[in-house]
């Protein structure tokens, strides 16, 4: 992205102070959101999400694996983010490694809950096939196709939509005589299990510019930010994750206020997202 002149920077900050952003939005207004499911037939679940000019493709692949020693009754979920050079020239080579790692860790923090498994968006116990021996491993990949700010929110939306599109094959286990033998598993080609994604949270990023904060910042607005707080909120209004970004320090009362605003904004955003998912699924079935 080409650097901004001082006049442009001043215009952006002044506009935000007046509650009119350069594209005409208000401070707490999102860009248009469009959702598409089933874009990658080979994956167990996939989705394409466009938030303004930011575009994300997310896919979910399920493989049979072995549960971890610490949690033999739970499946495993891994989240990876790939910032493609097609999205931004800065993402060439190793330039995107730090951003990808940061985004994937933030998403893991928001979606996978605590280490005991409580508060996770997905019920990991439903991924168990045989306790301690066989479980489903979910690999969630997010690909940034086009980048115009607010990547974290768009990635969270794409993952939620991809999970709602995910079908896990049903597994039949033949009981072997000896309990220490490896169980034989038969993966069905016809029957699929679907996830309950009502507990999957959305991420709302509030970006502080001057003395105000905005949602869904574009790249230009992000370049003017002093700091930002990404809040992950689920349907019940519980905070599932929180990440502060940007270098400047924030007063604690400002952070608490940002959390309240994020909870308020997330209510309508979740409703909007639910209707978009329903429309996308209806469109996919119509094909």
């Amino acid at each position: 992205m080409v650097g901004l002149s001082e006049g442009e920077k001043h215009f952006i900050r002044g506009g935000i102070a007046q509650d009119v952003r350069t594209d005409g939005r208000r401070r707490l207004q999102f860009r248009s959101l469009s959702v598409q499911t089933g874009v990658i037939p080979q994956a167990n679940g996939s989705a394409r999400v466009r938030l303004g000019a930011t575009e994300i493709i997310a896919s979910v692949k399920a493989e049979l694996g072995k549960p971890s020693i610490l949690h033999p009754d739970k499946g495993k979920v891994a989240i990876f983010v790939d910032c493609s050079p097609t999205a931004e020239p800065l993402f060439e080579g190793r330039g995107s490694e730090e951003l990808s790692a940061e985004l994937s860790v933030s998403l893991q923090r928001c979606l996978l809950g605590g280490k005991s498994g409580a508060g996770a968006a997905i019920d990991l116990s439903s991924l168990i096939v045989v306790d301690g021996k066989v479980c489903w491993d979910l690999y969630i990949d997010g690909l940034v196709v086009s980048s115009d700010g607010n990547l974290l929110d768009a990635l969270a939306v794409a993952i939620k939509v991809a999970l709602s599109d995910t079908g896990i094959p049903k597994v039949n286990v033949s009981v072997s005589a000896a309990s220490d033998e490896e169980p034989e598993v038969d993966v069905s080609d016809e029957e699929f299990l679907q996830f309950d994604t009502s507990g999957v949270p959305v991420i709302i990023t509030l970006t502080k510019v001057g003395r105000h904060y905005i949602v869904d910042a574009t790249s230009e607005e992000e370049s003017q930010m002093s700091s930002a707080v990404s809040v992950s909120v689920n349907r019940h209004g519980q905070i599932c994750g929180l990440t502060k970004r940007g270098g400047a320090g924030l007063d604690p009362s400002v952070i608490f206020d940002m959390i309240s605003v994020a909870k308020h904004v997330s209510q309508q955003f979740i409703s909007l997202l639910d209707s978009e998912i329903a429309a996308a699924e209806a469109e996919e079935e119509a094909q």
């Binding site: 923090r109 409580a118 519980q238 924030l250 604690p252």
Partner: peptide, 25 residues
């Protein structure tokens, strides 16, 4: 743990420079 919270703080200025949270709160 069910969740965790990390705070980085400048005591004299009373400003938070880093805040990350995991789990359901």
């Amino acid at each position: 743990q069910d969740g965790s919270l990390v705070v980085a703080f400048m005591p004299a200025r009373k400003e938070i420079t880093q805040l990350t949270l995991t789990g359901e709160w």
